[in-house]
Design a protein around this nucleic acid. Structure first.
Length: 150
DNA sequence: GCCAACGTTGGC
DNA sequence: GCCAACGTTGGC
């Protein structure tokens, strides 16, 4: 089993939304690196940190898990969707996603500011300046370090 | 295949 | 709202 971190803007879709709906297809990812991780590496049962970005206190707010492995992101096929991509077709889908399920919400946000201070987390793309990856792998050590910060 | 222009992400 | 750091696009 692997560990991951996925970013989302809470104004668009946050941990409380996931708690409500239980399971959500992680659509709208239009970055090849992130797509490849969802398509090729994320397996059912993998654990994922839910990260809130572009908000007052950016940080990790809870845990989710992979419920359904890679399947085509159908929002790319819908001209009405803001994620529409005319280059993606039913026969040859360009974008893939996984579906994630709610596991838990932390009692508090582990802020980016705190994460940056942890010496053992310096290798995470998350704390790197200019890193825009919305999905990234997390090592077991990093996972446990972050859990110990709650 | 290079690279300038443009668009997006996301912290601050 | 600013802007740095990327990724993508498209002309050549």
């Amino acid at each position: 089993m692997r560990y991951w971190l996925m970013k989302s803007e809470p104004d668009v879709f946050g941990i409380d939304d996931l708690k409500k709906v239980k399971v959500e297809p992680w659509d709208g990812v239009r970055n090849y690196q992130a797509r490849n991780m969802m398509r090729d590496q994320m397996k059912k049962g993998d654990k994922i940190f839910f990260y809130h970005s572009s908000c007052k206190v950016p940080g990790i707010v809870g845990i989710m898990q992979v419920i359904k492995e890679s399947h085509p992101d159908v929002s790319a096929l819908n001209p009405e969707s803001k994620y529409y991509d005319p280059k993606s077709t039913v026969e040859n889908p360009r974008w893939f996603m996984v579906s994630v399920g709610f596991v838990k919400k932390f009692k508090r946000t582990i802020s980016l500011e705190e994460l940056k201070k942890q010496t053992t987390l310096q290798e995470m793309p998350l704390v790197r300046r200019g890193s825009r990856l919305s999905i990234m792998p997390v090592t077991k050590t990093e996972w446990e370090t972050i859990l110990s910060m709650i």
